[in-house]
């Protein structure tokens, strides 16, 4: 426990001190939000006000994108000698990964809050219902934890920092082929199939339904199931790869 907490502190310090990464994590989602609302928004017909449609999608994008930076942080650790020092300590193996993942979730909570604040200024008008907000927050948190563990595993697999960066692109582009920004029904058949079956769609739809007060169906459980699967698989893969390296 002490070891994990120590590593959380270390990773948080890293987060605060890598100014460029911090700016990317915080400003990029805000920039994307503003772009979708004010640049593309006027031309997209999603039924109803577009800002209300797109903000949940941006929040999901932001969570995914921010968590993916964990891959780079882990890869940096693995390519420097410092990891050998941690591995030769009598502490639970993988405590250093717990530190990275926890700090990643903390970073994302901050940037997601900022996105929501800017969205409110830009005209986002969610339903006020604490129970639904709590459910949405729990889902987003689960998503952040899942992507952070997957990213940690990827960072261990990547061998190089450049390679680890690749997952950032997957995390940044996957939401575009989903219902995050435009309804899946508006896409050509092939893409539509992808959009309807990939995890971002039920997650974005659930966050949207929860915040806008529309009926929530099975997609919420599907969304949670995807996140749970991500956490289990990502964590197991990360633990395995950490021992192998």
């Amino acid at each position: 426990m002490t070891a994990s907490l120590t590593f959380v502190g270390r990773s948080l310090r890293h987060s605060v001190r890598s100014i460029d990464a911090l700016l990317t994590a915080v400003l990029l989602p805000v920039a994307i939000l503003l772009m979708f609302v004010y640049v593309f928004g006027g031309a997209i017909d999603a039924g109803g006000r577009y800002v209300d449609y797109v903000v949940p999608g941006i929040i999901v994008l932001c969570a995914g994108f921010g968590s993916a930076s964990t891959a780079v942080a882990v890869a940096v650790d693995m390519t420097t000698g410092v990891i050998d020092r941690f591995r030769t300590l009598p502490i639970p193996s993988g405590a250093v990964l717990t530190g990275h993942v926890t700090a990643s979730v903390a970073r994302n909570v901050v940037s997601t809050s900022l996105v929501i604040a800017v969205a409110l200024i830009a005209g986002f008008r969610p339903e006020v219902d604490p129970a639904r907000w709590l459910a949405a927050a729990a889902l987003l948190l689960a998503l952040m934890v899942a992507i952070s563990w997957m990213a940690a595993a990827f960072g261990l697999l990547a061998k190089t920092i450049e390679g680890a960066n690749a997952i950032t692109f997957v995390a940044a582009f996957a939401p575009y082929v989903s219902s995050a920004f435009v309804p899946a029904e508006s896409m050509p058949a092939g893409l539509r199939w992808v959009a309807e079956h990939q995890p971002v769609t039920p997650i974005a739809d659930s966050v949207r339904a929860l915040t806008m007060g529309t009926p929530v169906g099975d997609e919420l459980w599907i969304a949670f199931a995807w996140c749970a699967a991500g956490i289990v698989v990502g964590r197991a893969a990360a633990a395995y790869l950490f021992r192998q390296n």
Binding site: T2, T6, D84
Partner: peptide, 22 residues
């Protein structure tokens, strides 16, 4: 080890305090 196993983003004092805690 051959390659200095220090954390470049932390200060010298922070590196040592981290190790002391661990």
């Amino acid at each position: 080890a051959q390659e200095a196993a220090v954390d470049g983003m932390l200060t010298g004092a922070e590196n040592l305090r981290m190790m002391a805690r661990l």
